[in-house]
């Protein structure tokens, strides 16, 4: 009997997954995996999740004093602390999600080798844990903004949500890609660290996009603005920082670039999933 006939008779081919779609079928397990990630993250530390507040606060202070005060990079950027922090948390989300997803398969080696599960669950859980970790930072930023008189606009909120979505999609796509390669070549996770190093500098986090505009060719600027991370950072600026200040120099075509960035992230998600499925068959034996 052919495989199709056998399937009609109730047989299945074990270990055949439907890719990232399966993550939704295994919602309950995904929830437990996320819970595990959250519960064990600060296990054995006294301060626990307080670290999620302390670390970004320290990071913020360093950047603020070094770049804002000593190097005086805040020239022409009013409310620089808020400008800075709203960009930093975007980069933090990306860093956390992307590097956790990249390591997720190797970190779950005992499971991957012994029990069949849709393997996309691991990077997906890693990205969700990173997102949960991002929420306290978002909360701090919101509180600070409200404190200095922030009145959220509808467009601004839409910008924040779109920015977060771009980062999540991008990190998931890249995480699938590099997570799969990482099984056979651990170089992947070091390479990812390198990419993340660049991520902070190739988007307007520590400086303003106008500083880039003033020194580079127009086509380089185009490229710079097409970077999905640049779009996400600018969308966060749009949501949190722009309503507080009076600036005329906002990036042109912010939303068009954001949509292009989202599209590019979706393409990368598709490519990541494709590569992941290609390599997935070998995970259990190569780990």
């Amino acid at each position: 009997m052919s495989t199709a006939q056998a399937e009609a008779a109730g047989f299945v081919v074990p270990g055949r997954s439907r890719g990232i779609i399966d993550v939704f079928r295994f919602r309950y397990l995904l929830r437990l995996l996320v819970r595990k990630g959250i519960l064990t993250r600060y296990h054995g530390s006294v301060l626990g999740w307080t670290w999620s507040y302390v670390k970004p606060a320290a990071q913020f202070l360093v950047f603020y004093f070094v770049f804002g005060i000593f190097l005086d990079l805040n020239r022409g950027i009013p409310a620089f602390p808020i400008y800075l922090f709203s960009g930093i948390i975007v980069i933090n989300l990306f860093t956390e999600a992307f590097s956790n997803a990249t390591k997720s398969i190797v970190d779950n080696a005992p499971l991957v080798k012994k029990i069949y599960l849709p393997r996309e669950l691991f990077p997906a859980a890693a990205v969700i844990v990173a997102f949960v970790h991002f929420l306290p930072q978002l909360a701090i930023l919101t509180v600070v903004c409200v404190f200095v008189g922030w009145i959220p606009t509808l467009v601004g909120i839409a910008g924040i949500l779109t920015g977060a979505l771009i980062i999540i999609v991008l990190a998931t796509g890249l995480g699938l890609l590099f997570g799969a390669v990482n099984v056979s070549f651990r170089d992947a996770q070091n390479f990812v660290e390198l990419i993340l190093l660049f991520a902070t500098w190739t988007s307007p986090v520590l400086y303003s996009w106008t500083m880039v505009r003033d020194v580079v060719e127009p086509w380089v600027l185009e490229l710079y603005m097409l970077n999905p991370i640049t779009s996400a950072v600018e969308l966060f600026h749009e949501g949190f920082w722009a309503p507080l200040v009076d600036v005329s120099d906002r990036p042109p075509m912010l939303w068009l670039n954001a949509m292009l960035g989202l599209g590019l992230s979706l393409v990368l998600l598709f490519v990541g999933q494709l590569v992941f499925r290609r390599l997935e068959g070998r995970f259990a034996q190569d780990l």
Partner: peptide
């Protein structure tokens, strides 16, 4: 491991029901 789906066969096939 082939029957549980952890590994994939290089030739032939495995079918399970239930």
């Amino acid at each position: 491991k082939l029957i549980s789906g952890v590994l994939k066969p290089d030739s032939g096939r495995v079918l399970t029901r239930g």
